[in-house]
């Protein structure tokens, strides 16, 4: 079974120079799509990626990452909408680069398709009542 998940990888300074992602692809036959990558002044690396492959290889890959000291967080719950705060104005619809927001024709309520969200965060600052929140 194939799986595809978006994860956040934190690389401590001690391993930030190693070819870890390369090994992930070579040794575990996983494909990856890097959504965001940065290295902080303290040399700690952060990478947001979508990692895909067979369920078995995916598990092995995650195990490998954990063993070399990478801290992994799931991105599946990362951006959430505070339903009590959302006014369904629709300001987010044209801001979102991946079209994760759409209008329900009947009610004109704003729908949030989480599977399209790339966690870029544009909606967080662009939402007038601040209904979009980032959760780690």
């Amino acid at each position: 079974m194939e799986v595809s998940k978006r994860i956040v990888l934190h690389f401590p300074p001690s391993i930030a120079g190693q070819p870890i992602v390369y090994k992930l692809a070579r040794d575990f036959d996983l494909s990856f799509d890097i959504l965001k990558a940065s290295v902080s002044p303290g040399e700690e690396g952060l990478m947001v990626m979508e990692l895909s492959g067979s369920q078995q290889n995916y598990g092995k890959g995650i195990q490998y990452l954990t063993e070399v000291g990478v801290i992994i967080q799931s991105l599946s719950q990362d951006i959430v909408r505070d339903e009590n705060r959302c006014t369904h104005c629709g300001a987010c619809i044209t801001i979102c680069p991946t079209g994760a927001f759409s209008l329900e024709a009947e009610t004109r309520k704003v729908l949030f398709d989480h599977s399209k969200c790339l966690v870029c965060g544009l909606c967080i600052k662009g939402c007038p009542p601040h209904a979009m929140k980032l959760f780690f």
Partner: peptide, 25 residues
């Protein structure tokens, strides 16, 4: 505007509202 697209200078432009229609209802 509420169709989600308007045409300006021959270009298809997506629209969004700052006013909540469901709340107005």
């Amino acid at each position: 505007l509420k169709s989600g697209h308007i045409e300006i200078h021959g270009k298809d432009v997506p629209t969004a509202s700052l006013s909540s229609y469901p709340k107005a209802v």
